[in-house]
Amino acid sequence: MEKKKLCLALYTGSVDKLTAAGVILSGAAADDMSVDIYVLLQAARAFRKDIGDDSDKLQMAENPNMKAEFLQSLKNLKVKTWVEFFKEAKEITDVKIHICGLAGKVWGGEKLDDFINIADDICGIGAYITSAQEADVNLFI
């Protein structure tokens, strides 16, 4: 049976939405979906090697004044960090992470090596559109 495909346009660089993306990726991994993630503007900052899941360097998209409580609650529930979710999904199913070339440059990243090691390549927007056209499920986070 051909795998269903999820195409995720990941725009957010906020810790709460990245965590939500990680939870959704876990569901896709459990279902053996093939996943393409396109890392767009704000998200590319979070993918920088010096940021990743360092929550001190990430903002909240909503309830910014409750960041400490949010992170503590995730910790109490033994929820993985967003990077751990992404890594685990890659271990389980076919997940490819593409950094948008423009987004990388905005945050000073020119080469794949400038980003955390779960990124697979740097690409243009045409690749995203093609993947989105082929996907069974499309998400923008």
């Binding site: 939870v23 876990s26 569901g27 529930l77 389980i92």
Partner: peptide, 14 residues
């Protein structure tokens, strides 16, 4: 039992 969603589903998958 030590994990919240999506932990149990992923544990089952593995």
């Amino acid at each position: 039992r030590g994990t919240a969603c999506p932990g149990p589903l992923l544990e089952a998958k593995k």
